[in-house]
């Protein structure tokens, strides 16, 4: 449980961070995903570049229908942010469920998604709510949708030496969104986490986005379940149809363990879809 030896330096700008990272370096902000991986020697960087005090990575802004969250914003800041609460409650809820208060005070959204723990909460909310991940490397910047960003178990689209500068979300003030989960009794990580983002036209669901995490190796966007909800009044029959479609949506990505096998997680995804819709509508 001791990491391999490494050097440490603190960067004061994105440019200096990118210049300093080297061939086998890692950016560190809160360290709550990276340090455990280093202690288990799953990650063995020779140098850490601390980006936690770069002002350009820290802000949360909401303007022109676009919510922007700095990569080094902490879970606690996001959970407490009035701007996030108004524009995307699902993300505020997910960030409020990460670890405990001490973890949320240090852990950052950029660090969380960069490591793509399948049982973590924020990725699921980001995928459902149509987030875009903004990335900068020495050769320039690029943007990728959250759905494409999460590739597989602990695997993302982020390339070596690239830094997540911000995460943006469409302002969803006219949507109803929510994130709910079944927490593991020991770790409180998600056995199943479900996020939904709904646009209602009267009693009819005009648009729906659904994502599942925890039960799957990555946060998975669930088009089948969403299609089953659109056009319905979110009645019991539609919820049952969506739950059934959901198990197909996540079928290829399911994961499980001895205590919570795949079949149970799959069934619970349907239950928590219903609860997410109820939370979003409530």
């Amino acid at each position: 449980m001791w990491p391999q030896q490494f050097d440490y330096q603190r960067a004061d700008s994105v440019e200096s961070a990118l210049a300093a990272i080297g061939d086998n370096g890692k950016f560190i902000a809160g360290g709550h995903s990276l340090l455990p991986a280093m202690k288990l020697r799953l990650s063995t960087p020779d140098q850490l570049v601390d980006i936690s005090r770069i002002d350009a990575l820290r802000g949360i802004t909401n303007g022109n229908g676009n919510l922007s969250i700095g990569g080094a914003a902490t879970h606690a800041e996001i959970a407490a942010s009035a701007a996030v609460g108004a524009a995307c409650p699902a993300l505020a809820q997910a960030c409020g469920m990460v670890g405990d208060q001490a973890v949320r005070n240090f852990g950052t959204l950029g660090g969380n998604i960069a490591h793509a723990d399948p049982a973590s909460d924020p990725p699921t909310a980001l995928v459902a709510c149509g987030a875009t991940i903004h990335i900068q490397g020495v050769d320039g910047s690029r943007s990728v949708s959250a759905q494409d960003f999460f590739v597989d178990l602990f695997e993302t689209d982020l390339q070596d030496g690239e830094l997540i500068t911000s995460i943006s979300l469409p302002d969803c003030s006219d949507c109803q969104c929510a994130y709910v989960k079944l927490p593991h009794p020991a770790s409180r990580y998600a056995i199943v986490g479900v996020a939904v983002c709904l646009k209602m036209d009267g009693d009819t669901c005009a648009q729906a986005d659904v994502a599942v995490g925890g039960a799957t190796v990555k946060a998975v966007k669930c088009a089948g379940a969403a299609a089953a909800l659109v056009g319905s009044s979110l009645d019991d029959a539609a919820l049952s149809a969506a739950a059934a479609a959901l198990s197909d949506d996540i079928g290829d990505w399911l994961t499980g363990d001895v205590a919570y096998p795949e079949a149970y997680r799959s069934a619970m995804a349907g239950v928590f879809l219903k609860r997410a819709i109820s939370a979003a509508s409530g």
Binding site: P185, A186, S187, D257, V258, A259
Partner: peptide, 13 residues
């Protein structure tokens, strides 16, 4: 035994 850890063999807390 496949779960010889208290992270996977769950006892009440």
């Amino acid at each position: 035994i496949l779960n010889p850890y208290l992270s996977t063999y769950l006892i009440p807390t």
